[in-house]
Computed example of a mutant assay.
Amino acid sequence: MYSLQFTSESTSNGIRERDFTLNGDSDLPGVPGVLWSPATGADRAPLVLMAHGGGNYKKHPAMSGRARLLVQGCGFHVAVLDAPGHGDRPRTAHDEAEIAELFRARAAGEPEGPIVVRYNAHLADLAVPEYRATLDALQELPEIGTDGPVGFWGINMGTAIGVPFVAAEPRVTAAVFGQHWPHVLAEQAKRITIPIEFDLQWDDEHISREEGLALFDAFASAEKSLHVNSGRHKELPRFEADSAVRFFTRHLTRAA
């Protein structure tokens, strides 16, 4: 059984930011997260859960920037957790070993994909129950409720966490994914039928075009949109965030 405890609160530029900790029954440290909401007029607004990329954290500029678009532009609530071994969460010996192996492969010019896929799958096994518990707790808040639509937005490692989460979570009604290998995730993607928007970099030096397309093709969604841009792995255009906001507005507002 998990419980959610708010630990701090601030308001700026029409956005209410609340840090929280998701606590379980064990003596393990709680999971830190953040909830962004409109400062006023947010009763029963849709919720978008986000997951950050590898090496980042819950308030990374990519996360806070996307949240700002959704809160200020759409009136939505947005929540992010620090992934295991990231942000304010301590690294385990397993984390350190996998990161060291990644850096070794990178220095040697070897493919990073097999290491990243393996490590991300491990992190997803830990993070998916945490995201489900967070959704349970957030839906108890009167400004969110149990009857509102829920979206998910995660790129890179956020996709590695998000695909198994969405595959297991019927409350999510629309999702934005992208930039990950199909290994492990393709079988889970076959169980996802909600609307999907998927980002792919055509010149990605880590994920081949064939691998990116294979993951997109695996989703069983009747409505799925592939957004392909030229550029390398870290060159996803910022305008894709605007597209994702339009996607969530279309699907979550209609559902509400």
Rank of each mutant, 00 (worst) to 15 (best):
Q179C: 05
G154T: 09
H122E: 03
P170N: 12
V172D: 00
F177M: 01
P182M: 00
L126W: 13
F152G: 01
I115Y: 09
M157S: 11
P149A: 12
V176K: 15
A175Q: 01
W153E: 02
R171K: 02
G148H: 07
R171P: 13
V166C: 00
P129S: 15
R118Q: 13
P111C: 01
I144S: 04
A133S: 14
R132N: 15
T146P: 06
E110I: 08
A168P: 08
I144Y: 03
G148C: 05
V128M: 07
F165Y: 11
Q188W: 03
R132D: 03
E130T: 12
N156M: 06
V172H: 01
A133W: 13
W181R: 04
L126A: 08
G113E: 06
I144N: 02
P142M: 05
E112Q: 07
T146Q: 13
R118V: 11
G178P: 03
V176Y: 07
L135Q: 01
V117M: 10
T134I: 00
E140W: 08
A160F: 03
G154S: 12
R171M: 10
V172Y: 00
A175V: 01
A175S: 05
E169C: 08
V116E: 06
Q179F: 11
V116L: 11
H183E: 07
E112T: 13
G109L: 08
V116C: 10
P114F: 15
M157Q: 07
F152Q: 05
F152Y: 06
A174I: 06
T134D: 00
V176F: 09
A137P: 13
V150A: 11
L138Y: 13
A108S: 10
Q139G: 15
N156G: 07
E110D: 15
P114D: 11
A168L: 04
N120V: 15
A167Q: 00
H122L: 02
Q179Y: 05
W181S: 13
D125R: 05
L138S: 10
I144C: 02
N156Q: 14
E187N: 09
R132I: 09
H183A: 13
I115N: 11
P129Y: 06
G109Y: 08
W181T: 15
E130H: 12
D125A: 03
G154Y: 05
I161Q: 03
V166Y: 00
R118K: 14
P170C: 10
L123H: 03
V184C: 10
G145T: 01
V184N: 15
D136H: 09
G109D: 08
P164Y: 00
V117C: 12
A160W: 12
V117F: 15
V166A: 01
L138P: 02
W181I: 13
E143L: 04
A127P: 09
Q188M: 11
L185H: 10
W153L: 04
E110L: 04
T146S: 15
G109S: 11
V184K: 04
A108Y: 09
L138H: 02
P142V: 10
T159W: 14
D136P: 09
A174H: 03
G113L: 11
V176Q: 15
A108W: 14
